[in-house]
């Protein structure tokens, strides 16, 4: 494993850890979406890296473009749900989401 791949993998890992840390620590719904997006950006980096390693960069690029489209749709749906929740609850605090319990 050469130095460039080590750097890219470390960067991706750090981004994933940052995203997951944010996901665990925050109570704000919008920050949760940002955390997920951050982790997904790391995955994008990993996909490009894998294309570079095996020499199929064109295929990896098509994957990345498709993935960005899907990820944006998820973010839009999430934002729509957060707006509706804000209209119902008056805030974006995840501790308010306790209507469903077993």
């Amino acid at each position: 494993m050469n130095i460039v791949s080590a750097i890219i993998l470390t960067a991706a890992l750090l981004m994933i850890i940052a995203g997951m840390f944010c996901l665990v620590r925050t109570y704000n719904l919008i920050r949760i979406i940002i955390a997920i997006e951050l982790a997904m950006k790391a995955i994008t980096l990993l996909l490009v890296f894998s294309g570079w390693v095996n020499g199929n960069l064109a295929l990896a690029q098509t994957f990345v473009i498709t993935m960005i489209v899907l990820e944006v749709i998820v973010a839009v749906v999430a934002a729509g749900i957060i707006v509706s929740l804000y209209r119902k609850n008056g805030n974006v605090d995840i501790r308010e989401l306790t209507n469903l319990k077993g």
Binding site: I36, L47, F63, A78
Partner: peptide
């Protein structure tokens, strides 16, 4: 949505690593 997004990230991350090989 949140759980599913985390699952997608895990699946896609593992696809990237498998694709490397």
């Amino acid at each position: 949505l949140v759980m599913s997004a985390i699952a997608s990230a895990l699946i896609l991350g593992s696809l990237a690593l498998i694709f490397t090989q």
